[in-house]
């Protein structure tokens, strides 16, 4: 998660709201769950794919 790159578009929250959230103050990405359950993986993969600024990276996809 790279909060410096993040532009706060909110695409990750739309893709998987149980894993990603946005900071109330500056709108940048917050990781709610660093090790999402298997059934969340598709949403997390989508979040990484659609992120406009390349701020979301998957480890061991």
């Amino acid at each position: 998660m790279d909060r410096e790159r993040c532009v706060g578009a909110g695409m990750c929250v739309l893709a998987e709201a149980t894993v990603f959230d946005q900071d109330e103050g500056d709108g940048t990405v917050l990781l709610l769950d660093p090790t999402p359950a298997v059934e969340r993986r598709a949403g997390v993969r989508e979040a990484a794919a659609v992120c406009p600024s390349g701020a979301v990276t998957l480890l061991d996809g």
Binding site: V7, G8, V13, D21, Q22
Partner: peptide
């Protein structure tokens, strides 16, 4: 500029 605004346009 964008940094001053993104917090106002979050999904929530």
């Amino acid at each position: 500029y964008r940094g001053l605004l993104t917090g106002r346009f979050t999904v929530r």
